[in-house]
Design a protein around this nucleic acid. Structure first.
Lengths: 151, 151
DNA sequence: TATCAGTTGATAATAATTATCTACTAATAA
DNA sequence: TTATTAGTAGATAATTATTATCAACTGATA
Protein backbone atom coordinates (compact mmCIF):
# COMPACT_ATOMS: atom_id res chain seq x y z
CA UNK A 1 0.00 0.00 0.00
CA UNK A 2 1.36 3.37 -0.96
CA UNK A 3 -0.18 5.08 2.04
CA UNK A 4 2.01 3.06 4.38
CA UNK A 5 3.73 5.31 6.90
CA UNK A 6 6.88 3.29 6.68
CA UNK A 7 7.10 4.15 3.03
CA UNK A 8 6.91 7.80 3.94
CA UNK A 9 9.47 7.64 6.77
CA UNK A 10 11.89 5.86 4.52
CA UNK A 11 11.26 8.34 1.76
CA UNK A 12 11.81 11.36 3.98
CA UNK A 13 15.21 10.15 5.06
CA UNK A 14 16.14 9.25 1.54
CA UNK A 15 14.86 12.52 0.18
CA UNK A 16 17.03 14.67 2.41
CA UNK A 17 20.13 12.81 1.34
CA UNK A 18 19.23 12.70 -2.30
CA UNK A 19 18.35 16.37 -2.44
CA UNK A 20 21.57 17.49 -0.79
CA UNK A 21 23.59 15.13 -2.94
CA UNK A 22 22.37 16.96 -6.01
CA UNK A 23 22.59 20.45 -4.59
CA UNK A 24 18.91 20.75 -3.80
CA UNK A 25 17.44 21.72 -0.45
CA UNK A 26 14.89 20.01 1.72
CA UNK A 27 12.08 22.54 1.97
CA UNK A 28 8.77 22.38 3.82
CA UNK A 29 6.93 22.40 0.50
CA UNK A 30 8.88 19.44 -0.82
CA UNK A 31 8.26 17.56 2.38
CA UNK A 32 4.58 18.45 2.24
CA UNK A 33 4.14 17.06 -1.25
CA UNK A 34 5.98 13.86 -0.41
CA UNK A 35 3.91 13.45 2.76
CA UNK A 36 0.73 14.11 0.88
CA UNK A 37 1.51 11.48 -1.74
CA UNK A 38 2.57 9.00 0.91
CA UNK A 39 -0.62 9.55 2.86
CA UNK A 40 -2.97 8.92 -0.03
CA UNK A 41 -3.47 6.26 -2.63
CA UNK A 42 -5.51 8.52 -4.86
CA UNK A 43 -2.70 9.41 -7.25
CA UNK A 44 -3.58 13.09 -7.55
CA UNK A 45 -2.70 15.39 -10.42
CA UNK A 46 -0.77 18.65 -10.06
CA UNK A 47 -3.89 20.72 -9.54
CA UNK A 48 -5.10 18.42 -6.77
CA UNK A 49 -1.72 18.42 -5.08
CA UNK A 50 -1.84 22.20 -5.26
CA UNK A 51 -5.23 22.27 -3.55
CA UNK A 52 -4.03 20.00 -0.77
CA UNK A 53 -0.71 21.73 -0.17
CA UNK A 54 -2.48 25.07 0.08
CA UNK A 55 -4.20 23.88 3.24
CA UNK A 56 -0.84 23.93 5.01
CA UNK A 57 0.87 26.57 2.87
CA UNK A 58 -1.83 28.97 1.72
CA UNK A 59 0.55 31.14 -0.26
CA UNK A 60 1.91 28.28 -2.33
CA UNK A 61 1.90 28.78 -6.07
CA UNK A 62 1.01 26.20 -8.67
CA UNK A 63 4.39 26.87 -10.26
CA UNK A 64 6.03 25.71 -7.05
CA UNK A 65 4.06 22.50 -7.22
CA UNK A 66 5.29 21.82 -10.74
CA UNK A 67 8.86 22.67 -9.83
CA UNK A 68 8.73 20.48 -6.75
CA UNK A 69 7.24 17.63 -8.72
CA UNK A 70 10.06 18.02 -11.20
CA UNK A 71 12.70 17.86 -8.47
CA UNK A 72 11.10 14.86 -6.79
CA UNK A 73 10.99 13.08 -10.12
CA UNK A 74 14.63 13.89 -10.77
CA UNK A 75 15.75 12.34 -7.50
CA UNK A 76 13.54 9.35 -8.15
CA UNK A 77 11.21 9.80 -5.20
CA UNK A 78 7.97 10.02 -7.11
CA UNK A 79 6.56 8.55 -10.27
CA UNK A 80 4.61 10.30 -12.98
CA UNK A 81 1.74 8.35 -14.50
CA UNK A 82 0.80 9.55 -17.99
CA UNK A 83 -2.54 8.62 -19.42
CA UNK A 84 -4.91 10.18 -21.91
CA UNK A 85 -7.80 8.90 -19.82
CA UNK A 86 -6.83 10.33 -16.46
CA UNK A 87 -4.26 12.96 -17.37
CA UNK A 88 -0.94 13.22 -15.58
CA UNK A 89 -0.91 11.82 -12.06
CA UNK A 90 1.64 11.15 -9.34
CA UNK A 91 2.56 8.23 -7.15
CA UNK A 92 4.87 7.86 -4.17
CA UNK A 93 5.79 4.38 -5.31
CA UNK A 94 8.44 4.25 -8.00
CA UNK A 95 8.84 0.49 -8.08
CA UNK A 96 7.86 -1.12 -11.34
CA UNK A 97 6.33 -3.95 -9.38
CA UNK A 98 3.62 -1.41 -8.69
CA UNK A 99 1.24 -1.46 -11.65
CA UNK A 100 -1.79 0.77 -12.01
CA UNK A 101 -5.43 0.06 -12.65
CA UNK A 102 -7.03 2.99 -14.42
CA UNK A 103 -10.78 3.31 -14.64
CA UNK A 104 -11.75 4.63 -18.04
CA UNK A 105 -15.03 5.96 -16.66
CA UNK A 106 -14.29 7.69 -13.33
CA UNK A 107 -10.52 7.98 -13.89
CA UNK A 108 -9.70 6.47 -10.54
CA UNK A 109 -6.24 4.95 -10.37
CA UNK A 110 -5.52 2.15 -7.96
CA UNK A 111 -2.35 0.24 -7.27
CA UNK A 112 -1.79 -3.35 -8.19
CA UNK A 113 1.22 -5.19 -6.88
CA UNK A 114 2.75 -7.37 -9.52
CA UNK A 115 4.24 -10.72 -8.64
CA UNK A 116 7.89 -9.96 -9.29
CA UNK A 117 8.50 -13.47 -10.50
CA UNK A 118 6.30 -12.82 -13.49
CA UNK A 119 7.69 -9.47 -14.51
CA UNK A 120 11.38 -10.14 -14.00
CA UNK A 121 11.76 -12.61 -16.87
CA UNK A 122 9.86 -10.30 -19.22
CA UNK A 123 12.04 -7.30 -18.47
CA UNK A 124 15.14 -9.43 -18.68
CA UNK A 125 14.15 -10.74 -22.05
CA UNK A 126 13.20 -7.31 -23.33
CA UNK A 127 16.59 -6.02 -22.27
CA UNK A 128 18.45 -8.83 -23.98
CA UNK A 129 16.42 -8.75 -27.18
CA UNK A 130 16.48 -4.98 -27.58
CA UNK A 131 19.93 -4.05 -26.33
CA UNK A 132 18.38 -1.29 -24.22
CA UNK A 133 20.34 -0.44 -21.08
CA UNK A 134 19.06 0.46 -17.64
CA UNK A 135 15.68 -0.90 -18.54
CA UNK A 136 12.72 -0.39 -16.29
CA UNK A 137 9.08 -0.88 -17.05
CA UNK A 138 5.60 0.36 -16.33
CA UNK A 139 2.45 -1.67 -16.59
CA UNK A 140 -0.93 0.01 -16.77
CA UNK A 141 -4.28 -1.71 -16.81
CA UNK A 142 -7.34 -0.01 -18.28
CA UNK A 143 -10.89 -1.03 -17.59
CA UNK A 144 -14.07 -0.25 -15.72
CA UNK A 145 -13.74 -0.23 -11.95
CA UNK A 146 -16.25 -2.04 -9.71
CA UNK A 147 -17.90 1.25 -8.75
CA UNK A 148 -18.51 2.18 -12.36
CA UNK A 149 -19.66 -1.19 -13.64
CA UNK A 150 -23.36 -0.94 -14.42
CA UNK A 151 -23.51 2.84 -14.30
CA UNK B 1 5.97 -5.73 -37.29
CA UNK B 2 3.55 -2.81 -37.38
CA UNK B 3 4.63 -1.80 -40.89
CA UNK B 4 3.34 -5.06 -42.30
CA UNK B 5 1.09 -4.48 -45.29
CA UNK B 6 -1.28 -7.19 -44.16
CA UNK B 7 -1.89 -5.23 -41.01
CA UNK B 8 -2.82 -2.23 -43.10
CA UNK B 9 -5.06 -4.12 -45.52
CA UNK B 10 -6.91 -5.71 -42.67
CA UNK B 11 -7.21 -2.36 -40.92
CA UNK B 12 -8.57 -0.60 -44.00
CA UNK B 13 -11.38 -3.10 -44.39
CA UNK B 14 -12.13 -3.00 -40.70
CA UNK B 15 -12.01 0.76 -40.61
CA UNK B 16 -14.64 1.25 -43.30
CA UNK B 17 -17.05 -1.02 -41.47
CA UNK B 18 -16.34 0.40 -38.05
CA UNK B 19 -16.67 3.98 -39.20
CA UNK B 20 -19.98 3.40 -40.92
CA UNK B 21 -21.27 1.42 -37.98
CA UNK B 22 -20.82 4.48 -35.79
CA UNK B 23 -22.07 7.00 -38.31
CA UNK B 24 -18.64 8.16 -39.39
CA UNK B 25 -17.36 8.32 -42.96
CA UNK B 26 -14.31 6.85 -44.58
CA UNK B 27 -12.45 9.87 -45.87
CA UNK B 28 -9.15 10.12 -47.77
CA UNK B 29 -7.58 11.86 -44.78
CA UNK B 30 -8.57 9.08 -42.41
CA UNK B 31 -7.24 6.51 -44.81
CA UNK B 32 -4.02 8.48 -45.23
CA UNK B 33 -3.32 8.58 -41.52
CA UNK B 34 -4.02 4.90 -41.10
CA UNK B 35 -1.80 4.06 -44.09
CA UNK B 36 0.95 6.27 -42.75
CA UNK B 37 0.90 4.62 -39.35
CA UNK B 38 0.81 1.19 -40.94
CA UNK B 39 3.76 2.00 -43.13
CA UNK B 40 6.05 3.15 -40.38
CA UNK B 41 7.23 1.84 -37.07
CA UNK B 42 8.37 5.25 -35.85
CA UNK B 43 5.31 5.97 -33.73
CA UNK B 44 4.96 9.61 -34.76
CA UNK B 45 3.26 12.35 -32.80
CA UNK B 46 0.43 14.53 -34.10
CA UNK B 47 2.76 17.16 -35.50
CA UNK B 48 4.75 14.55 -37.40
CA UNK B 49 1.63 12.92 -38.76
CA UNK B 50 0.55 16.38 -39.89
CA UNK B 51 3.82 16.91 -41.75
CA UNK B 52 3.53 13.56 -43.50
CA UNK B 53 -0.14 13.85 -44.42
CA UNK B 54 0.49 17.28 -45.91
CA UNK B 55 2.63 15.68 -48.59
CA UNK B 56 -0.48 14.07 -50.04
CA UNK B 57 -3.03 16.61 -48.82
CA UNK B 58 -1.28 19.96 -48.74
CA UNK B 59 -4.31 21.82 -47.45
CA UNK B 60 -4.79 19.57 -44.44
CA UNK B 61 -5.11 21.33 -41.11
CA UNK B 62 -3.58 20.21 -37.86
CA UNK B 63 -7.05 20.29 -36.37
CA UNK B 64 -8.11 17.66 -38.87
CA UNK B 65 -5.23 15.48 -37.77
CA UNK B 66 -6.36 15.70 -34.16
CA UNK B 67 -9.96 15.04 -35.08
CA UNK B 68 -9.00 12.09 -37.21
CA UNK B 69 -6.80 10.68 -34.50
CA UNK B 70 -9.69 11.01 -32.11
CA UNK B 71 -12.02 9.12 -34.43
CA UNK B 72 -9.50 6.37 -35.11
CA UNK B 73 -8.99 5.96 -31.39
CA UNK B 74 -12.73 5.78 -30.82
CA UNK B 75 -13.15 2.96 -33.29
CA UNK B 76 -10.14 1.20 -31.80
CA UNK B 77 -7.94 1.30 -34.89
CA UNK B 78 -5.01 3.15 -33.39
CA UNK B 79 -3.36 3.37 -30.01
CA UNK B 80 -2.19 6.45 -28.19
CA UNK B 81 1.07 6.13 -26.29
CA UNK B 82 1.41 8.67 -23.48
CA UNK B 83 4.81 9.39 -22.02
CA UNK B 84 6.43 12.33 -20.35
CA UNK B 85 9.69 11.39 -22.07
CA UNK B 86 8.50 11.21 -25.65
CA UNK B 87 5.18 13.05 -25.55
CA UNK B 88 2.04 11.64 -27.11
CA UNK B 89 2.62 9.21 -29.92
CA UNK B 90 0.54 6.89 -32.09
CA UNK B 91 0.68 3.26 -33.10
CA UNK B 92 -1.25 1.20 -35.62
CA UNK B 93 -1.08 -1.80 -33.33
CA UNK B 94 -3.68 -1.83 -30.59
CA UNK B 95 -2.87 -5.26 -29.24
CA UNK B 96 -1.61 -5.28 -25.70
CA UNK B 97 0.84 -7.98 -26.67
CA UNK B 98 2.65 -5.11 -28.35
CA UNK B 99 4.77 -3.41 -25.68
CA UNK B 100 6.93 -0.35 -26.28
CA UNK B 101 10.57 0.36 -25.65
CA UNK B 102 11.06 4.06 -25.07
CA UNK B 103 14.52 5.58 -25.20
CA UNK B 104 14.85 8.23 -22.51
CA UNK B 105 17.61 9.96 -24.47
CA UNK B 106 16.53 10.13 -28.12
CA UNK B 107 12.83 9.38 -27.47
CA UNK B 108 12.71 6.66 -30.07
CA UNK B 109 9.91 4.20 -29.51
CA UNK B 110 10.23 0.66 -30.78
CA UNK B 111 7.86 -2.25 -30.60
CA UNK B 112 8.42 -5.29 -28.49
CA UNK B 113 6.20 -8.33 -28.91
CA UNK B 114 5.32 -9.84 -25.60
CA UNK B 115 5.03 -13.56 -25.21
CA UNK B 116 1.28 -13.83 -24.64
CA UNK B 117 1.76 -16.71 -22.27
CA UNK B 118 3.46 -14.41 -19.82
CA UNK B 119 1.02 -11.53 -19.92
CA UNK B 120 -2.23 -13.46 -19.97
CA UNK B 121 -1.99 -14.79 -16.41
CA UNK B 122 -1.06 -11.37 -15.10
CA UNK B 123 -4.00 -9.62 -16.70
CA UNK B 124 -6.29 -12.44 -15.62
CA UNK B 125 -5.14 -12.14 -12.05
CA UNK B 126 -5.40 -8.36 -12.06
CA UNK B 127 -8.94 -8.62 -13.33
CA UNK B 128 -9.92 -11.13 -10.66
CA UNK B 129 -8.22 -9.32 -7.82
CA UNK B 130 -9.49 -5.88 -8.69
CA UNK B 131 -12.97 -6.54 -10.00
CA UNK B 132 -12.24 -4.34 -13.01
CA UNK B 133 -14.18 -5.26 -16.14
CA UNK B 134 -13.03 -5.24 -19.76
CA UNK B 135 -9.47 -5.08 -18.62
CA UNK B 136 -6.69 -4.45 -21.07
CA UNK B 137 -3.12 -3.49 -20.37
CA UNK B 138 -0.17 -1.55 -21.66
CA UNK B 139 3.43 -2.28 -20.91
CA UNK B 140 6.11 0.33 -21.51
CA UNK B 141 9.82 -0.15 -21.08
CA UNK B 142 12.10 2.81 -20.45
CA UNK B 143 15.83 2.77 -20.97
CA UNK B 144 18.69 3.81 -23.19
CA UNK B 145 18.57 2.44 -26.71
CA UNK B 146 21.63 0.85 -28.34
CA UNK B 147 22.22 3.98 -30.47
CA UNK B 148 22.33 6.22 -27.42
CA UNK B 149 24.39 4.01 -25.14
CA UNK B 150 27.78 5.64 -24.72
CA UNK B 151 26.73 9.00 -26.14
C1' DT C 1 28.26 39.45 8.93
C1' DA C 2 28.48 39.12 4.03
C1' DT C 3 27.97 36.31 0.31
C1' DC C 4 26.04 33.04 -2.56
C1' DA C 5 23.25 29.47 -4.41
C1' DG C 6 18.93 27.71 -4.22
C1' DT C 7 13.90 28.59 -3.55
C1' DT C 8 9.47 30.65 -3.56
C1' DG C 9 5.54 32.84 -5.45
C1' DA C 10 3.65 35.88 -9.00
C1' DT C 11 3.17 36.27 -13.56
C1' DA C 12 4.05 35.73 -18.44
C1' DA C 13 4.88 32.64 -22.06
C1' DT C 14 4.62 28.36 -24.46
C1' DA C 15 2.97 24.01 -26.28
C1' DA C 16 -0.46 20.76 -27.05
C1' DT C 17 -5.00 20.07 -27.69
C1' DT C 18 -9.86 21.19 -28.28
C1' DA C 19 -13.82 24.13 -29.66
C1' DT C 20 -16.09 26.92 -33.01
C1' DC C 21 -17.74 28.00 -37.32
C1' DT C 22 -18.27 28.26 -42.30
C1' DA C 23 -17.96 26.01 -46.57
C1' DC C 24 -17.97 21.60 -48.70
C1' DT C 25 -19.27 16.78 -49.82
C1' DA C 26 -21.28 12.24 -49.81
C1' DA C 27 -25.41 9.75 -48.90
C1' DT C 28 -30.26 9.58 -48.84
C1' DA C 29 -35.10 11.00 -49.64
C1' DA C 30 -38.47 13.10 -52.51
C1' DT D 1 -32.68 14.48 -60.83
C1' DT D 2 -32.80 17.62 -57.17
C1' DA D 3 -33.25 18.80 -52.37
C1' DT D 4 -32.12 17.80 -47.89
C1' DT D 5 -29.27 16.16 -44.33
C1' DA D 6 -25.58 14.86 -41.61
C1' DG D 7 -20.94 14.50 -41.40
C1' DT D 8 -16.38 16.57 -42.50
C1' DA D 9 -12.49 19.69 -43.66
C1' DG D 10 -9.90 23.51 -42.87
C1' DA D 11 -9.15 28.04 -40.64
C1' DT D 12 -8.92 30.05 -36.55
C1' DA D 13 -9.83 31.09 -31.71
C1' DA D 14 -9.83 29.37 -27.20
C1' DT D 15 -8.43 26.42 -23.58
C1' DT D 16 -5.52 23.65 -20.70
C1' DA D 17 -1.39 22.00 -18.87
C1' DT D 18 3.06 23.08 -18.24
C1' DT D 19 7.31 25.79 -18.26
C1' DA D 20 10.11 30.10 -18.13
C1' DT D 21 11.18 34.42 -16.03
C1' DC D 22 12.26 37.28 -12.36
C1' DA D 23 12.36 39.81 -8.03
C1' DA D 24 12.27 38.91 -3.19
C1' DC D 25 13.50 35.67 0.32
C1' DT D 26 16.09 32.06 2.99
C1' DG D 27 19.37 29.00 4.74
C1' DA D 28 24.08 27.51 4.56
C1' DT D 29 28.80 28.70 4.32
C1' DA D 30 33.07 31.56 4.33
Amino acid sequence: MTSDNQVFDKKVIEMGDLLRKQGFRLTPQRLAILRLLAGSDQHPNAEQIYGLVKKDFPTTSLATIYKTISVLKQIGQILEINTSEAGTRYDISTSFMNAHLICTRCHAITDFDLPSGEIDPIIKQASEDSGYQQLMCRLNFYGICPNCVGT
